[in-house]
Design a protein around this nucleic acid. Structure first.
Lengths: 264, 264
DNA sequence: CAGAACGTTCGATTGTGCCAAACTATTAAG
DNA sequence: CTTAATAGTTTGGCACAATCGAACGTTCTG
């Protein structure tokens, strides 16, 4: 169902594909797996029991769900990630300064995934859902070309690496403003490089604007990107042109110098 | 390294064992895997590349780390869990009432894992580390016999199920107050059943006391447990005897009636 | 510059994952 | 109450893929 090629263990790949299917279907029974992949009933059964016994699946009646072991490993990956603590502090600092929703994402195999997220403490959101939406997006994947932070990261890559990512993931269009041609994309990336930060103007969701800036580690590689997001009516004018860029520049600067010290 | 028996896919098991090892070692290179498991270098290599390409591992130089895909699946498991929303609200409600750290855990294959956690908004912790510790424990596994919430869940199980859990996980002793004999444990469980809530008195950590209460779903099965934790000097006297039990009873009651309606 | 240590690639072999079919359990239908 | 149908579980034989070991390429170390 996914990538082929020799140097992979097909059996493991099958198990992982089954996991993906269960996630996509929001829970699945043995028969569903058989229908989705072309494997024998008994094979599906064996894979499912193996994953279940290891804690990667949870069996609710006859239906298998993604197990909580993933929560354990996911939180582990997040918090043991070398730069988690300073990055998290930076996200909070940025949220305090901008009074908007801020997050930090990293490139995970050609998509960005949210590692840390923070809202300004004086909730500004509609109808008191402030604290509830806290960390609502952590662990979510986004296409790189459709988010401010993703674009900021892409702008730091050599052209062929960007090409490779597009080859793999395409240029999906969540809204009608999303960049969908390579030509446009590279023009945008050039502009980002000059400007030093990116603007995701309703690329991912209608009415949403985000400003992103890449964060470079001590070794010169880009670790990820910080971004500020909010509704277009607030992220506009001088806020968009000067306030947020200035906050981003300050926070990224101090984060980068902190990272330079932290590394052994 | 773990369970054997027929109805499992050994190849998948090997991959999963490798994942565990990488977590335990806080990142590992190919050689480390070979040293830990008895597999050929080439085999380890194939497994590692398979897991890496699927996003389950992240390769940092020559060292493999747990990948961020786990974060994606973990958050998914958490938020798509049928009763997440009401449970999360209940944890926050409990934190508001008790002004202490509160959490909700579920039984995952004989250990409890923290699904939701909340601190009272007026941080009460030492030296301003309040917001920083937020959700520090989500995704963490604990032995059931050593936590208030775990004991509350155990108390709801038939004796043989408790025995089976002990057979698998033993009775580890994080502190010198931890219950380590089956006799003591069953006596404690009886007391919990009578009382209606559990007290974890420095069972897991010195100076920490927690009060737990099981939450029962509409179908009569126990979903998990809510608990309130804090330092022994605060969780004491009337707070321990009446205030917290009363708050727990109220919150669990309303949560259970909400759950009864929610389910189709 | 030699030597070691590690990652990667490549065939040969054998173990094991896969399928198909039988069996059991549960549910629906007549 | 019997029969049929659907889903899950278990079993055994075969072919293929996972495994191993050895060779190659690369990067560090002395």
């Amino acid at each position: 169902m996914s990538q082929r090629d020799h140097p992979t263990v097909q059996t493991t790949q099958t198990s992982l594909d089954i996991l993906s299917t269960i996630q996509e279907l929001d829970g699945a029974r043995t028969t569903d797996i058989v229908a989705e992949h072309d494997v024998a009933k008994s094979t599906a059964h064996k894979h499912l029991t193996t994953l279940e016994r290891a804690g990667y699946l949870r069996k609710d009646g006859e239906i298998y769900h993604i197990g909580f072991k993933f929560l354990n490993l996911g939180e582990y990956a997040r918090e043991r990630w070398s730069w988690f603590a300073p990055v998290k502090a930076a996200v909070e600092e940025l949220a305090d300064r901008t009074e908007e929703e801020c997050d930090f994402v990293v490139d995970d195999h050609g998509r960005v995934i949210t590692i840390s997220e923070s809202y300004h403490k004086w909730a500004k959101y509609g109808a008191g859902d402030g604290s509830k939406r806290y960390r609502a997006n952590i662990g979510t994947y986004y296409p790189m070309h459709a988010t401010g932070s993703g674009l900021a990261i892409l702008a730091s890559y050599p052209r062929e690496r960007v090409e490779a990512i597009i080859d793999e993931w395409g240029l999906s269009a969540p809204t009608e403003h999303t960049i969908t041609s390579r030509h446009e994309l590279f023009a945008e990336l050039d502009r980002i490089q000059e400007r030093g930060y990116s603007i995701g103007d309703r690329y991912y969701a209608e009415g949403l604007r985000s400003v992103g800036k890449a964060v470079t580690g001590a070794d010169g590689t880009v670790l990820g990107a910080l971004s500020v997001s909010g509704p277009t009516y607030r992220i506009d004018g001088s806020v968009l042109d000067t306030e947020i860029p200035r906050a981003l520049a300050t926070v990224v600067d101090s984060l980068e110098s902190e990272l330079a010290e932290t590394v052994p």
